[in-house]
């Protein structure tokens, strides 16, 4: 018997953090997504321990400043896309505002670190979200196009195909067939 799941990643990650940090012994506050404020300085050794514990869950403690910033960019993009109410501004403007850097700087930084452009990343995330909505929430293409701010279903389909190389309907077909075969 099969049950299909949908994940609330925000809640999921928060719970894991809380879980792991409760035994850690250091007072902390979770500052938004991906940031923990420890109320006192944590010794390196202890931090290593934490890193080891987190590693199991795929949680990495980022050190590099550049990487931190890139991660922030990713987080904001993620937030933008997954929001119920998509903010009606261009990504470039939004990022520049939120992070207090010029878009040009952010863009270059992002490409250097991730080897891909912010635009591409945004598209990737959107399509990824579209896949989720398509599969798990069973939204129609029209609804998804609306939710993700595409001008039309055709536009969404085109971008979907450009990004993945297959059409949304083929995608659905394949995943459905996979589920049938229990893969």
């Amino acid at each position: 018997m099969r049950a299909f799941l949908k994940f609330d990643y925000n809640l999921l990650t928060k719970k894991i953090l809380e879980d792991k940090l409760s035994d850690f012994g250091y007072k902390y506050t979770i500052q938004g997504f991906g940031e923990i404020e420890f109320h006192e300085k944590v010794p390196e050794a202890k931090l290593e321990e934490l890193r080891y514990i987190f590693d199991e869950y795929g949680i990495t403690i980022i050190e590099n400043q550049k990487t931190v910033l890139v991660q922030k960019i990713k987080d904001i993009i993620h937030e933008m896309i997954y929001a119920e109410e998509v903010p009606n501004v261009k990504v470039s403007v939004y990022l520049a505002e939120k992070l207090n850097h010029s878009y040009g700087y952010l863009s270059n930084l992002f490409s250097d670190v991730t080897y891909t452009s912010i635009e591409n990343y945004v598209i990737l995330q959107k399509i990824e979200f579209a896949k989720q909505l398509f599969l798990n929430d069973k939204l129609s293409l029209t609804e998804i196009a609306f939710r993700l701010n595409y001008s039309s279903v055709a536009h969404l389909s085109k971008q979907f195909k450009n990004t993945t190389g297959i059409t949304p309907s083929a995608f659905l077909r394949i995943i459905a067939s996979r589920r049938e075969r229990n893969l």
């Binding site: 990643y9 991730t114 891909t116 990343y121 990824e128 896949k131 989720q132 190389g165 297959i166 995608f171």
Partner: peptide
């Protein structure tokens, strides 16, 4: 790499060229 670093769902990772 994107999938790897951005926690995207590998099960839905389909790509064709």
């Amino acid at each position: 790499w994107q999938y790897h670093t951005s926690g995207l769902n590998k099960d839905n990772f389909l790509f064709r060229m």
